[in-house]
Design a binder for these strands. Sequence first.
DNA 1: CCAATTACAGACACATTGTTCAATTGTGTT
DNA 2: AACACAATTGAACAATGTGTCTGTAATTGG
Lengths: 190, 190
Amino acid sequence: MRKINAAVPTDRRAERTRTALREALKDLVTERGWDSIGIQDLCERANIGRSTFYLHYPNKDALLQGGLDDLQAELRRQAHSRLVKTSAHEKAALQFVYGLIAHAHEQRKLFRSLIGRRSGYVVQQRFREMVIRLIADELPVATEKISRDATVRWLAGALVELLSWWVEQKTPVSPEELTAIFKELSQSAR
Amino acid sequence: MRKINAAVPTDRRAERTRTALREALKDLVTERGWDSIGIQDLCERANIGRSTFYLHYPNKDALLQGGLDDLQAELRRQAHSRLVKTSAHEKAALQFVYGLIAHAHEQRKLFRSLIGRRSGYVVQQRFREMVIRLIADELPVATEKISRDATVRWLAGALVELLSWWVEQKTPVSPEELTAIFKELSQSAR
DNA sequence: CCAATTACAGACACATTGTTCAATTGTGTT
DNA sequence: AACACAATTGAACAATGTGTCTGTAATTGG
């Protein structure tokens, strides 16, 4: 394995190379999914020599990993800023759900490649973990005998799958409707 | 692509070859996950010539799909036989759920590698698709305004995620309890 | 301007995939 | 038991992709 400078590049060329690679990754994942993408393809799309790739990342996963941190940070930021905007007297639990759904609505294409059928495992996994954390934060403390963890996972799985169904619909229902559907279906969890 | 005889083999040799391959797949997935397994490895483990593999399956995915198809068929069979036994006024849907959970219980290690953290994308995807099919078959026809597809996906996501939580627990609740939990949580879908 | 860093194309060894083929072995059938 | 046929085998093959290494050219920061 070769030594990789994983830190923030000080050189403009390195900077350009990396952003080009990340853009290429985003595009290609959106178009063709994760598995079918080769390093060849990434480099061609990014207009980068293939050997240059290995100067920055040891493999495909590392590239994804790098980009994903940023993405997740942004998702959380956006979701959070939406959350604060919702009025304080709407004290219903799982307020973030509408925010998340609305966000998925605006960035439909991105979400399709994120959680849709063709995305990669790492991405889906991360996204699910994020939703699990969000739900774990907001779910009222369990009163019944059903394990809270179980409920959280159950709810998160349902939400993610519902979302991934939704973003692939051609003429989807509105974000408000979807939120209503989800809350209606999930009322047993309250 | 070569022509594959996908039908039930009439020849014992073909029968043996296929079961050997499926056993090898099960073992190897349990040991090493999905991604790192090559067709080489499968054939060595199954004691099969590499070219023989391609006489039966076009690729790794197809082998997995075949195994999952069997599982699906068996779960359906179980569910059906249960259904006849249950009294006519207990028209409970989703009979297969207990079968699936019990199966996951018996083959805990396999399921951990199948749907747990270490598995690959393809496996999870295929598994989820199977659950979606099973649910789609058994879910009562929708009466409300909520789209049936949405309900199916919602339910499938919840079940799969609950399962994947369960198989990673150290001291898990019993299969019966888990089934009860699932039905309790999902009652809004009925 | 200069030294250091980065990019590049090309070539290399290596692994994996999927196909083909002739020879051999096992099977179902009569 | 003998037959025709289907399955298996190992070897060889092209094609593709990966990761590494080289010498050279181009950009960069100082």
